[in-house]
Design a protein around this nucleic acid. Sequence first.
DNA 1: ATGGATGCAAATGCTTTGCACCCGT
DNA 2: ACGGGTGCAAAGCATTTGCATCCAT
Lengths: 140, 140
Amino acid sequence: MEIEHRAKAFEDALRRAGIRITRQRAALLRVLAAAEDHPDATQLHLRATEAGAAVSLATVYRTLSALEAQGVILKLEFEGEPARFEPADGTHHDHMIDVETGEVREFVSDRIERLQAEIAAEMGYEIVRHRLELYVRRKA
Amino acid sequence: MEIEHRAKAFEDALRRAGIRITRQRAALLRVLAAAEDHPDATQLHLRATEAGAAVSLATVYRTLSALEAQGVILKLEFEGEPARFEPADGTHHDHMIDVETGEVREFVSDRIERLQAEIAAEMGYEIVRHRLELYVRRKA
DNA sequence: ATGGATGCAAATGCTTTGCACCCGT
DNA sequence: ACGGGTGCAAAGCATTTGCATCCAT
């Protein structure tokens, strides 16, 4: 199954970094692996709890930090809401947020990526990371 | 002088919106009009205080909200720091943050703007606002 | 004069942390 | 067994808010 496989991949990444796989971390990894949306810490806490794995909110935060440090997940900070998280599945993408519904959609644009790099280079910099968010409304 | 002129323009915008120009607001407008950088609420509070105009931090926040609502200033929310503010001088631009020094530089790219609009349109949306930040490092 | 604006301190919301106990390796 | 991990409650930070007082219009 897809989710289990993904969860295992996460575990391996952590183990490689010398991080212990505890009951609560395993639970969170499974929840994250199953996430189709972009849940925040509280939602992850809730999902883990509903799945029968008691985890404290503090541990959720601590685990998310560790996962982010390992590059296993990405932290998304949209305007005016708690941070959300998504599994880092390798392919970089940016986000489009429907301001009406809150729905988040992903998109990629090689051309924009290239332009960003060009602009930075022209000013004597190289890009470490970037953030591009489009707050949109469904067209009439 | 440049700064006074800018500050007056801010006052007019507020008066037009039926907002009273109090001593503390006038002081903050002057501080904002003089800001070359991108100060946060605490820095603005400090500057107003140093300039001899006592303003409470709560009022700084309340005034910043009002100014933002009038479109007179823009709120910038970079990663991992308190919100910063900049006077809205009409021309839209994005930001490049030097991760080493914290320095913020502005840039514009019509091409990126256009591509963003295209992408949104293709997906059936129109852009309400967007946020593009490049976290960069000086090139070797 | 009168309703919006201010100051203070308390409250909020998200996130982090100190500490004593626990458990994965 | 031992050192990292956990839970709990308390602390931290940026920001907001209730309320009594004040002042711009």
